[in-house]
Every structure is written in structure tokens, then in C-alpha cells.
Nucleic acid binder design. Sequence first.
DNA 1: TGCATTTCTAGAGTTATTCTAATTTAGCCT
DNA 2: AGGCTAAATTAGAATAACTCTAGAAATGCA
Lengths: 155, 155
Amino acid sequence: MTVMHTRPRAFSMMENTMNERPFAQAINRLREVDLRPTRQRLALAKLLFEGGCDRHVTAETLHEEAQRSGARVSLATVYNTLHQFTDAGLLREIMVDSGKTYFDTNIHDHHHFLCERSGELTDIPAHMVTVAELPQAPDGRRISRVDIVIRICDQ
Amino acid sequence: MTVMHTRPRAFSMMENTMNERPFAQAINRLREVDLRPTRQRLALAKLLFEGGCDRHVTAETLHEEAQRSGARVSLATVYNTLHQFTDAGLLREIMVDSGKTYFDTNIHDHHHFLCERSGELTDIPAHMVTVAELPQAPDGRRISRVDIVIRICDQ
DNA sequence: TGCATTTCTAGAGTTATTCTAATTTAGCCT
DNA sequence: AGGCTAAATTAGAATAACTCTAGAAATGCA
Ligand SMILES: [Mn+2]
Ligand SMILES: [Mn+2]
Ligand SMILES: [Zn+2]
Ligand SMILES: [Zn+2]
């Protein structure tokens, strides 16, 4: 399956070598999308993108994590920042169940396992799913994305 | 002067069961799962299943529709009924975006177009999508369903 | 027809999210 | 460095979409 993603390249704190100025990449990346690199945005970027592993966070979970790490960021700012990062192509929004919005640090073409017991999301790289045939988009429309959620349960 | 004492006819469940053929199936289905065919449930079943076309409703939209049709059903009952119908296998729940829960009258294997402009859902019969390869479910789990949402936008 | 059980309902409560308006901060310009 | 202005942050209020509660009504059974 091929869906056109003309999205900015993933922003990764891992690209910083240890001795480079901390946050240099983050600051540049935020500048590119006209977001001032404030203390709050940098703290959240660090939590989201440092460590490199793909994450699925809610505003609430990221806020708690920020508190625990000692960063003083309001919940309103966490919401604002998650949406700004999403608009900037640094995050992807996923709405999958139970009225909660997840933000995915993996912006590459991929799909998800959804655990029906816990609600946990797990990435599936795009190459592991082959869609041989898709219907045409209705007249005057085009396909912007194909989201595949594989729901898993016990046994 | 003549005063008409036309006592409102008592509601007869038997009459409805026998005469209103479109609901015979729903009523039997409800009986199977121990849901009494009450005035409210039958009114909502009529709105949902009469006309045959596949629908994607929210509690709010179905409640408005019920009001307009003259049925007096509380919003709480609409929520209860939609969940009961879902548990009974008469509806399927879809959570696709914007924190709203949609209920789908099409319970057969199928997928959806999602209009990114309006949020409107449209059915795609399962045979129009061919999935050639799927990843294995994690150890001790099995795939319960594969949901495919094709997001469409303008142009 | 009486009675236990189920269902319905208004309104209160909850949760996730957005809005508002006052305060603080960032970036730029002397 | 100090001042200015737009952007950003924040606490708390507001909203949206449910969910719960507890009393009233309907239902089905004997
Ligand atoms: Mn993901
Ligand atoms: Mn459908
Ligand atoms: Zn799980
Ligand atoms: Zn549309």
C-alpha cells in the first residue's frame, strides 16, 4: 500500500551527539515551523523524542511525565504543544477508542495493533501489511491516508 | 355537544410484533438477549433499521431524529439502547475521530471511507479491499478484527 | 390483579478537552 | 542592557460527550 506522505522528516533528539549543544536540533526544528523554542516546548520535546523509541502518549500521560521530571508545564500548554507539534508534522494524532486522543511520535507510514484489554497501541511497520487492492476515492476526492488497526484479544 | 372519550389505546406488544414486520427480526433478536421490546427500544430500532440503508449515528443525532419523529425518548435511554443493541450484535461501535462514538447499522465485515472535511463515514464492502499480508498477533493473542479507515480529502 | 423486576428518565457527576483573559516570556530594536 | 510588542503560558471556567443515580413507570409473570 502506498499513501503519499509529504511530511517533514522525523525529529529525533538521538541525532544529537552527546557533546553538541543540548537542544540545538530541537531549537532549529521548532524555528523551522515558526514555534519559539520555549522552556516548556523544549522540555516536552525532550520527553517525547529523546530515547528514540516510538511512543503513544495522551496529554494527560505526558503532563504527568513532565511533572515527574520536574518540568513545570501546565496541562493547557501540553495540549497546545501536542497540537502544534502535530500541525508541524512532528507528531501524528490517533483516535482509536474511549474518547482519548493519542499522539504518536512515529510519523512514518505505519499501522497499529490495538490491545482490546488494555487499549495499548503498538506499531506495525508499513512493510508488514500488504494491501493488494483498494477502492477508488469518490469523485473529486483523493485518499490522504489509510489507517489499519488490528485489534487483538486474548487466546 | 359531544365529548369524545377516546381512551388512548393500550399499547399491545403482540400487535406490534405481528404487524410491524420490519421489526420482527429485531424483536426476536432482542428477546434472544433478554431485552424487552419496549416502546422506546422499538422506536429507536425503527429509526435505525427501517429503510435498510446502512447508517452511522451518534447518540446525539439519533436522539434528535427520535424527537423530530415524535418519539419521546430521553438521551440516557438512547445511550443505553445503543449500547444494548451493540452488545446484542445489532450494531457495531466505531470510534474514528473527534471524541464522538458512532454506531454502525452495518454489522457485516466492511471498512470505511472517512471524509476529513465533514467527518462523514461511508461503507466499503469487505470484498473491495484485499489485504494480502498481515503480521502475526503477539504471543498468546489473536486478531479479533482488522479495521481499515481510508481517509479522503479534497482534490 | 398483584408484585417483582426491568426499564426509563431528569438531572447530577465525570472526563477529556477547549476557551478566556490575565500574566509572563521571547525576540527584536534601539 | 533596557524597552517594546507579539507570542506563549497559565489557572480556572466552560464545554462536550458521555455515565451514573435513584426514583418513577412499564413490563411480564403467577
Ligand atoms: Mn504508532
Ligand atoms: Mn459502516
Ligand atoms: Zn496489551
Ligand atoms: Zn464527506
